[in-house]
Every structure is written in structure tokens, then in C-alpha cells.
Nucleic acid binder design. Structure first.
Lengths: 140, 140
DNA sequence: CGAGTAGTTGACGTTAACGTAAACGTAAGG
DNA sequence: CCTTACGTTTACGTTAACGTCAACTACTCG
């Protein structure tokens, strides 16, 4: 299999960092925190598609204001084994809480959007009135 | 006018802090950072309804993962005077960027919600299958 | 008047999420 | 072989957003 086959590509730390607009330092930190686990070729880190997807999820979590520890917890939900009943129930409980959190956050966003749109309307109206006043002056 | 009239109530720092589940220290910090400006009665801070609304907005911003500096910038949008044309255009530009930010964040939330819901379905199905297996065993 | 409660400023401590620099290894190219 | 580019670990520095503590003031209650 060639390295260039789609879906099997690998990435150096620098490549991945540049692609996502973060620094190598950040990627190493995420690894230390248990959010990434690239393979090694000797001492160098080799990232695959799976790691790439994880990084995408990390950055999504960051945009939503989550701490790295919270992001890791959400990964634990992805990874946890579906072995025992108690385990599954615990997982469902955690998922439910995440869901609530997200719904609340979405409400906040909708409210903020409404505020921004209201301010935008006010401002464009004020601008329009200002300009209409200037037109009158020019034609006066 | 009485202090107890609706809409004119005032609050001590402790009252406001408890109501919103934050500490007095946080309120003082928000003030230092220019996010709040309560009146004073001698040396003590007196918060009114307007301050209370602001605090609500501050906490909404925090839930969305914004820095205090970003929250303050959004307040500047509320407060900026509609005097000059250039001012209004600048404001409309900033509002537009906020709007984009919020829309992006909303997409992130919708994606995260979809993930959580998929995981929830998987887990509840696994749980159901596990329990159906247990029922068979009991009746075997 | 003394104790308790709630507020004040000032200063130092803490945690997360990196930035930055030092000192070193390694593979490619001229 | 020497330089350049890219990687490694280790460790200390930095910023934001508070927590915590000390020392002081002011009001109220018994």
C-alpha cells in the first residue's frame, strides 16, 4: 500500500499543525492531555486520518469554549466499550447531560443572534436616516 | 420613589452574586475590566436593574466561551453612539463579524448535537440488545 | 460597648493552555 | 562534510480569570 492512497495518508506534526492553523506545541499538549495518540516512526510523530478527525473535534470543542478535560471526556464517550449494562447506563447519563448542555448553549446563541440582528437593524436604520438627511441638505 | 418599586430595585454585591451563582470577587473583576459600573453609596457598590441585565449578558457570553475582552467589545456595540456615519459603518462591520461568528458556532453545536444523538441511539440499542439477551437466558 | 455580619482595597496564589527557548538528533542537499 | 530544515524533550515564562487572605471600615443587634 502506498502512503498516498486516499484514507491512508499520514502527516507530520508540522503538516497537521499548518493545515489546522495551530502550533506543534499545541498538538504535543493535546497528546500529553490524552486527546491524541499518534504513532511513532522512531521518535517522530506520525498522524493518520483518525488522528486528523480527532483534531478536528478538538478544535470544534475549543470553539464551543470547552476545556481540554471536557473534550477528553467526550472522547471517552466515543471510545468506551459497550460491554456491561452499568457502563452503558452511565454513558447514556453522560450523553444526556451533554445534550442538555448543548441545547442550553444553542439557546444562548439564538438569543445573542437576536440581539445582534436587532442592533444591526437599528444601526442601518440610523445610517439610512443620516444619509437621507444629507441628501436633503445637498438639494436644499 | 421607594427602593422596592419594581424595576427600581437595587442590590448589594452579595445579593447579586448569590442570585447568579458567582462570587463577589468575580463581580469586582468584571468591574475592573469595564464590564460593570455600579453606583456607589459611600464606598459600597449598589447594583441596579441595568447592571443586573449586564451581568446576565456577561454570563451568557461566558457560557459561549467568550473572553471578558470579547464580551466588553460586544457591550461597546450596545453603547456606541449613533452620531457619525463612519462610526455607524464601523459598527455594522463589527456586528456582521459577530453574526458570522455566532452562525459558525451554531453549526458547531448542531454537529455536536448530531454526534451526541447518534451515540445515544447506538448506546440505547446496545443496552436493549443486552437486556433482551438476559431475558432469553432467564426463560431458557 | 462588644460581637457579628457584610462590605472595601491590595496583594499574592493558582490553574489552564499554551508560547518560547535551549540543547540535541536526523535526514536531505549542495 | 557542512548547512538547513524539521523533529525531539525539558523547562521555564505568560496570560486570563478568578481564589484566597489580610487588614480595615461600617452597621446592627443584644
Amino acid at each position: 500500500m502506498k502512503q498516498t492512497e486516499p484514507g491512508n495518508r499520514t502527516y507530520s506534526i508540522g503538516e497537521l499543525a499548518e493545515e489546522f492553523g495551530v502550533t506543534s506545541r499545541a498538538l504535543r499538549l493535546y497528546e500529553e492531555e490524552g486527546l491524541l495518540d499518534p504513532q511513532r516512526e522512531g521518535t517522530r510523530r506520525i498522524y493518520n486520518e483518525r488522528n486528523r478527525v480527532r483534531l478536528r473535534l478538538i478544535l470544534r470543542g475549543k470553539r464551543l469554549g470547552w476545556a481540554l478535560s471536557e473534550i477528553r471526556e467526550s472522547f471517552d464517550l466515543y471510545d468506551s466499550d459497550h460491554g456491561e449494562e452499568a457502563q452503558l447506563e452511565l454513558m447514556l447519563d453522560k450523553l444526556c447531560k451533554r445534550h442538555e448542555m448543548l441545547v442550553e448553549q444553542k439557546k444562548d446563541i439564538d438569543n445573542a443572534l437576536a440581539d445582534v440582528e436587532r442592533l444591526t437593524n437599528d444601526a442601518s436604520q440610523a445610517l439610512e436616516e443620516l444619509r437621507s438627511g444629507q441628501r436633503k441638505l445637498r438639494h436644499g
